Simulated assay, not measured.
Amino acid sequence: MTAVARTLHRHIEVDGLQIFYRESVPDNADEAPVMLLLHGFPSASHQFRRLIDALGSRYRLIAPDYPGFGHSDTPADGTPYSFDRLAGLVDGFVERLGLTRFVMYVFDYGAPVGFRLAARHPERIAGLVIQNGNAYTEGLSDAARGFIALRPGVPGAEETIRGLLTLAATRGQYESGAGDPRLIAPDGWTLDQHFLDQPGRAQPQIDLAFDYHSNVERYPEWQAWLRRHTPPTLITWGRDDMFFPEPGAHAYLRDLPDAELHIFETGHFALEEYLPDIAPLVADFLDRAWKPA
């Protein structure tokens, strides 16, 4: 019989916000390895839907939508949004679910969110799966460096960010660098754009764009964390990512020489094109790396 994941779709309140999340329910739920999946920009937990279908019958996979993304509430208190605040809310989500130990899958924005969680609670991190999630300056393309250099009040800066919130830019993030665009379903960028276009969604994205430099400033701290804790790590990477090119993947090996590295001929959203290759790597890694507390 073919194993098909059962996936629950729920909300939980964190600091007055309703946070949406997907959670697979494996048959051996009490013993199954747990993996927290942290999505990127401009997406949400739906970017992991096929991975959850592929692996969720064997592993407990939990994928939240960050506040201001996907089906989760958008903060409306007027406080500027930041990666510190985003990580704090995800930390609260982890606390509410009672997750005490998990492997963390980090992609794009998921890397700065996830490394903040790891720095706060190293005892919770059983391992890392890193997919086009950067923590080294070598992994910043010229386009990424230009993005990071944007500052509030500089003429044209906000307009540049708003240009990244358009359908053309969203679709471009999926298709740029892809080896075979026919393998990339249009559902991803269509749903991403639907959420980006909702009322109140633009400002949090603008705030995060202006705050991205805070992540680069913390790269040395996160690299030191990796050297100190040496978590089991699987790295899968789309070689032709327009933002985080291949050198960013290899840079991890300086601090994690035992990490397992796989490079794929694709772009930013590597799972869209290479799920059949990446899913077995993740499953094998979970089987080897999972050690409950």
Rank of each mutant, 00 (worst) to 15 (best):
V282P: 01
W189A: 02
V25R: 13
R171S: 06
L234K: 05
P292D: 09
I12S: 02
A289Y: 05
A135L: 15
P247K: 10
H229P: 00
Y66Q: 05
P181Q: 08
G267L: 02
G146I: 06
R6E: 13
P257T: 07
W290Q: 05
Q223T: 10
P80G: 08
V14S: 02
L117P: 00
F69K: 03
L8T: 14
W290M: 09
R151W: 09
F107Q: 09
L61H: 03
D240P: 02
S82G: 10
R60V: 10
F243M: 15
L271K: 03
L281I: 10
T2I: 14
P75N: 12
T266H: 10
E272W: 04
H262M: 07
H46D: 10
L261I: 13
T2K: 15
G153T: 09
D91R: 03
Y252G: 02
D180T: 10
V216L: 05
Q18R: 14
E246D: 15
F41M: 07
A185E: 15
G16Q: 07
A119H: 12
E273V: 11
A54T: 12
P292Y: 12
Y105V: 01
H71Q: 15
A283D: 14
Q198G: 08
M35F: 00
F269D: 01
E138C: 10
I206E: 08
E217D: 13
P280A: 06
L167H: 11
V4D: 13
F83C: 01
G88Q: 02
F244G: 00
H71P: 02
P199S: 11
A168L: 11
I12Y: 08
P220C: 09
R22V: 00
T74L: 07
P112V: 07
T74H: 07
R58V: 08
G127D: 04
D53G: 10
A224Y: 08
I62L: 12
A251G: 10
P276F: 06
R120Q: 15
E23G: 04
E273G: 07
R96V: 11
R254F: 06
R116W: 00
H194Q: 14
E23I: 09
